[in-house]
Nucleic acid binder design. Sequence first.
RNA 1: GCCCAGAUAGCUCAGUAGGUAGAGCAGUAGACUGAAAAUCUACGUGUCCUUGGUUCAAUUCCGAGUCUGGGCA
Length: 316
Amino acid sequence: MRNKRNVIFVAGPTAVGKTKYAIEIARAVHGEIVSADSMQIYRYMDIGSAKPTKEELAQVKHYLVDEIDPRDEFSAAEYQTLAKRYIEKIFQDGKTPVVSGGTGLYLNSLLFDMDFSVMPKQAQFRKQLEAEAEQYGPEYVHNRLKVLDQAAAERIHPNNLKKVIRAIEVFEATGEGIREFRESFVPTKDYGCILIGLNRDREELYRRIDERVDLLIKAGLVQEIESLLEKGLTEDNISMKGIGYKEIIAYLNDSYDFQEAVRLVKRNTRHYAKRQLTWLRRYEKMHWFNLTEFETEEKALSAISDTIRSEAVRGE
RNA sequence: GCCCAGAUAGCUCAGUAGGUAGAGCAGUAGACUGAAAAUCUACGUGUCCUUGGUUCAAUUCCGAGUCUGGGCA
């Protein structure tokens, strides 16, 4: 049997049931899972990121879950390097990589030949630009970008300060404009990609989100966050910007009461799920499965398996 | 039974000195190249409770009714 080098991607909004399905799919294809989740990658953040349970992790080998210290700064560029390394290793072992997750930029870094090598961020410069925005308003910083990189300034909204700053950063360091997403929409040649998209009727998805948030609270989210704060984490750490974390920290800092914190976690998770769907809809090669429409999990899984099999054959 | 207040968007409510209405929240759509669970952009919907009157014109003023709060019996 030839080595077909196909990577199976299992994507979908939060709370759709990715974890469970990815494990079943991985078992079916003799695979191992590479997570594409920007929060589950951090250690000690088990409850709030809805990590797979110990039992689930024991069923199939998982990579990039629980690997980074939440005090460290992590980025999409580092993710790409690590994930590609693991994918290669899984191929070497004669197994099939199953990428599972809902972080769009991370998925892009594996699906397309995105080149992050241009330059790392420059904390100092960033702070300076942030201060300028604070003082003179975001328009002022946007005007700076306009002088340097007209094209980038046109497509980045002045209010989107983070992206404006990053574009200036890149230009200052390289003398070139920041690359546009469309330009690099070139599928990677490193392996074949089979895209499986999981979705559910909106109503059901939102209900699952609300239920899961209640469950996370019951499971001890607040205690988990208190112990993270004891480790020295603060609201300024990137890892603490995750949904569930930032709202509970604000509650612990007396910004609002507990009920309000829970309400915001639910709402922000719903908004996030919606944004994920927007991102995922752009993938033309995605095979979508609306889990609401399947009577049983088995039926859904067998439909998914059929699709994977026929895609794998086509890719040969 | 009587008195008072309210009834307007999915929710909470504002408003129209009479010319068929708008905020917040919720919702929907979109963007995205080293923070991405981040960050940013755009967009609805209305028997203005029912009914009679006054008026060129009533969601708005007046009367009656219904419902919902609160008070008095």
